[in-house]
Amino acid sequence: MIEAINISKSLGNLKVLDNISVKFDPGKTNLIIGQSGSGKTVFLKCLIGLFDPDEGSVMYDDVVFNKLPFKAKKKIRQKVGMMFQGGALFDSATVIENIMYPLDMFTQLSFQEKKERARFCLDRVDIKDAGHLFSAEISGGMQKRVALARAIALNPDYLFCDEPNSGLDPKTAILIDALIKEITEEFNMTTVVNTHDMNSVMEIGEKVVFIYQGRKLWEGSNKDILDSSNEELNQFVFANNLAKQLKKMNSDI
């Protein structure tokens, strides 16, 4: 179980995160939503320890993760998979080598076993045939899939995804979302996904946390989100005209 307790973080003179507390549902797909620049990435990076929060604690089960020494953090991190906003694939390695990398580093498997595991992960994200290509040779959508495959290579307990479907066409975006949800359920992971895509929210948001200018303004499930009376959340959710009219129709009935 992951929990953030009163997290605050300033970068430069800007208070990026202001006293955020969230308890993430274990075994589910948790979504963090908010506008561009609201602090989602910084929050996620605090959760996994790429940023140190100025105040507050990040709990993994019963341990205060952000107070642990480097070595103990490493132990927990091996149970964490992360999919970065830009993919962060190793560009000096092929797709299959990228996925095998965590296995190389942290398992005693034979080369053949590692390869098999990597193939399995590639297959799981539907790009079996791209294994021999370098990351510069595959499309953005494929890079996201490879990043996801690499993140799940070690069968992590926790999966973090930073905007897994930004910059993708709607169809591929839905596919990736569905994939994340499926994988979360299949392997019983606790997944945290950053997104500003309302489609994802409606499709996979079992638990949704809304961040606005570094503060948590709302949390609930995707079923409650349309009925919320929170002003900022409504502005975010019903940003486009079509959605606004739907909302109006909904309240007229």
């Binding site: 953090k73 490493k74 964490v80 190793f90």
Partner: peptide, 18 residues
């Protein structure tokens, strides 16, 4: 530097690699 700005170094850190 390129590995840093494309978050490849962060990716290593997350995996628990020094």
């Amino acid at each position: 530097g390129t590995m840093r700005v494309t978050e490849q170094i962060d990716a290593l850190e997350i995996m628990g690699v020094n």
